[in-house]
């Protein structure tokens, strides 16, 4: 007699094997996992750790300080994704800079910032380029478009990051990764496959609907039983094996790798992106001769450890007291994707 196939949810709920630690490294996964209440249906021996996958959370304090300086001291029109508005800098957030009279505009896409610059030739427009491989091509498109149009009043402030070296830095933090599907939509399967084959780092590429997240977890559970390292693309409807070559080419053309600071993790070599020399006219740091800024995070904040899965938000002294989504101390409380924010907002 044929056994009725288990659903993904049943596979997860009935798991009784050894302790399994799964790290999601995409803030949208963190957010959806909380929003859907997926932690509530996990058995005790599965632990979900929220890693450093939210571009807002890993953006260092000094970047916000630079942006505030551009808005207030350099009188630039700062265009940004809404996510960055409330992130605390050393002295103030961009929301604070706006209240002091700085021009801070929220845009849906970097391309809108270029259009704004074209329509306002009397203003200096700076787009705050944060994000991983998913978001960076958009910033590159914006720079190319500005160059094509010969716009002299557009530049970007880069804090773009890439994931592969972060996986190395986090190796050992988890038994398997839930890879960020929309990053892989650009980067493809190759690197994740290599991590499994050559470095013993397991993981699956996961999508973002309830079905997709549950199925990805079920696949991790079943594959873990073999004891071997594994890789599965659980988001094939969006992630091609080769990813998006045009997106990668574009990044290669406009940007180059550099060392960069991750809030909480410190400097990870060659995990950042900056504009190539050919595009230096569009680099806000050069254009405005920004000084090197040492940002100061609130010393009580433990975002860094939270991002590495070393402590829970509730282990932090300021969590839920001095630090709330309305008055965030650390970046993990600001972003909707931030681990602390998700714990604070969704935990019953």
């Amino acid at each position: 007699m044929e056994e009725k196939k288990k659903t993904a949810k049943e596979i997860i709920e009935s798991y009784d094997g050894p302790k399994l630690r799964i790290m999601e490294v995409c803030g949208t996964h963190t957010h959806e996992i909380f929003r859907l209440g997926i932690r509530k249906i996990l058995p005790e021996n599965i632990e979900l750790i929220s890693g450093p996958g939210c571009p807002v959370c890993v953006t260092p304090v000094s970047f916000i300080d630079e942006a505030v300086m551009l808005a207030l001291e350099k009188q630039a029109a700062v265009c940004t994704f809404g996510d960055l508005i409330r992130v605390p800098g050393t002295k103030m957030s961009l929301g604070g800079a706006r209240a002091e009279g700085g021009q801070v505009k929220i845009v849906y896409t970097p391309l809108d910032a270029v259009d704004y610059a074209a329509a306002h030739p009397e203003e200096q427009v700076v787009f705050l380029a944060v994000g991983f491989e998913t978001t960076t091509p958009g910033a590159c498109l914006a720079v190319k478009k500005a160059k094509e149009q010969g716009l002299a009043n557009f530049s970007i402030l880069t804090a773009n990051k890439t994931m592969p070296n972060a996986y190395h830095a986090l190796k050992g933090s988890a038994d398997a990764f839930l890879y960020p599907g929309h990053v892989n939509a650009i980067t493809g399967e190759e690197e994740c496959r290599r991590l499994a084959l050559e470095e013993g780092i397991s993981g699956v590429i996961a999508g973002f609907t309830a079905k997709e997240i549950l199925t990805a977890l079920a696949v991790i559970i079943e594959k873990s039983r073999t004891g071997k390292s594994f890789f599965v693309n659980c988001y094939p409807r969006v992630v091609r094996p080769e990813g998006n070559p045009a997106g990668r080419e574009l990044m290669k053309e406009v940007m180059e790798e550099c060392d960069t600071e991750w809030r909480g993790l410190g400097v990870i070599p060659m995990s950042g992106m900056r504009l190539k020399a050919a595009y230096r006219d569009y680099d806000a740091r050069i254009k405005f001769a920004l000084p090197k800024i040492e940002g100061r995070a609130n010393p009580a904040c433990r975002c860094g450890e939270v991002l590495q899965g070393k402590c829970l938000p509730s282990d932090c002294k300021v969590f839920g007291k001095g630090c709330t989504p309305q008055h965030p101390v650390g970046a993990c409380m600001v972003s909707n994707e931030g681990t602390c924010s998700a714990y604070y907002q969704y935990q019953l």
Binding site: K5, I11, L111, A185, V219, V239, N244
Partner: peptide, 28 residues
């Protein structure tokens, strides 16, 4: 297509229902 911040980053080839069904099929 899948759109992120004003850029279409990938074509979508099927819905999540058939995608996850295929994956679960593979497991059994």
């Amino acid at each position: 297509v899948m759109v992120h911040a004003g850029v279409a980053i990938a074509k979508i080839t099927q819905d999540d229902e058939s995608e996850t069904d295929d994956l679960l099929e593979m497991l059994s």
